[in-house]
Computed example of a mutant assay.
Amino acid sequence: MNENYNISSSPHIRDKATTSNIMLYVVIALLPATIFGIYNFRHENAWLLVAVTTGTAVLTEYLYERLMHKPITIKDFSAVVTGLLLALNLPPTLPLWMGALGSVFAIIVVKQLFGGLGQNFMNPALGARCFLLISFTGRMTYFVYDGVTGATPLAQLKAGEAVNTMDMLMGNIRGTIGETSVLAIMIGAMFLLLMGIIDLRIPGTYLVTFVIFITIFGGHGLDPQYITAHLCGGGLMLGAWFMATDYVTSPITKRGQIVYGVCLGLLTGLFRLFGGSAEGVSYAIIISNLLVPLIEKVTLPKPFGKGGEK
């Protein structure tokens, strides 16, 4: 009797979903924000930056795996998601070579050098964004809308100026390519929820914790306009729904996801209200990514039959 058995570690779960299917759904969900961003910043040719960062991410992954004699994984769409998310987190006026450099950093340094998809310790797109923000601060904080430069609504809010929350909701504001229209982001988020790709646990806890924090420490109490402006401003919605929920860099335990969401909300509120910058979502998510192993260790349920309470 000669039979071959495939032995793998637990958990053993049967599911029709594949990595490529999940990533393709994420790409589809990002299309509303991407299309709106390209239209919103059409005068800055935002579509070129989107094409360059996405194409560079895919090409970099292909070349690296080819040179390292590893299986080619570009068909799983993970590189497409990384490049697209990076583009949506960049100002539309950023030089194309900087966007390409960010994609190379995301794929090689954050993803491939740690073992590829499933082994990266932080979100590759956000890791690349922070790398570019540190390296090219001036260009990464230069925002234009309809040909006019100026501060983002979130920066104006931090300075005590009035902002138009309806414009922030619709997206007629300065900012990065994909963060401006909360409406477009929520259309994509609803798609992911309906398809069962994500649930409300992480983004819901994140946003609720953030609202509680700014209500207590923001100095405006339960001011609906102030809270709405903070929710619609910056990359909060894009980060909460599309990057904080990354399967690889977020906890798998239910209690862990709640703790993770609380950490995200507290850090974002801390950076926004008391930090030198008006934004803080990227750093909040990356720091929380680094805390995930500790969060899972604390919240991991006890195996059946072991460690029972006496």
Rank of each mutant, 00 (worst) to 15 (best):
V211G: 02
I185L: 15
I185M: 13
G171E: 01
D199Q: 03
P203M: 04
G171P: 10
G178N: 08
L222Y: 12
L231V: 11
G171F: 05
T205P: 01
F191E: 04
T180S: 12
M170G: 11
L193N: 02
T205W: 05
V211S: 08
I173S: 10
L236Q: 10
S181A: 01
N172W: 12
C232H: 01
P224V: 14
V163F: 02
G160V: 03
I214Y: 01
I197S: 13
A184Q: 07
L222C: 13
I216K: 07
V208P: 02
G188V: 09
T215P: 08
G218A: 06
R201L: 15
T165P: 03
G218R: 05
I212D: 01
I216N: 06
L157V: 02
L238E: 09
G235W: 05
I197W: 00
Q225A: 15
S181W: 03
G233C: 09
N164G: 02
Q225C: 04
I185Y: 05
M170H: 13
I227T: 11
G204H: 07
D199K: 13
I227G: 12
A159F: 06
G218N: 03
T215S: 14
L238A: 12
G160N: 08
L200E: 08
A229V: 05
A162P: 04
G204A: 01
I173Y: 01
A189K: 10
L222W: 15
G171Q: 06
F213D: 02
G218P: 03
A189I: 08
I185W: 04
G234T: 03
T215Q: 11
F213M: 05
I212R: 07
N172D: 14
F213W: 11
G178R: 14
A189M: 00
N172T: 12
T228H: 00
M170I: 15
D199L: 01
F217N: 07
D167V: 00
P203C: 03
T205D: 06
L236K: 11
F213K: 06
N164Q: 08
M237Y: 10
M168Y: 04
M186T: 08
L194H: 09
T205I: 09
G234C: 06
N172H: 15
K158S: 10
H220K: 14
S181K: 11
I198N: 11
G221V: 13
G234P: 11
R201F: 06
I202E: 05
G235Q: 12
G221E: 13
G234E: 04
F217T: 10
L157A: 00
L238G: 11
R201M: 10
I197R: 15
I216F: 13
L192T: 00
L193V: 05
T205Y: 00
I227V: 15
G188D: 10
E179F: 08
T180A: 14
F213A: 03
I197H: 08
D167P: 01
A162F: 00
L183G: 04
G196Q: 03
I216G: 07
I214Q: 04
A189S: 12
A189E: 02
F210R: 01
C232L: 15
E161A: 14
A229P: 02
G219W: 07
G233I: 05
E161N: 14
I197Q: 13
S181D: 04
M190Y: 14
I198A: 07
L193R: 01
M170S: 09
V163A: 01
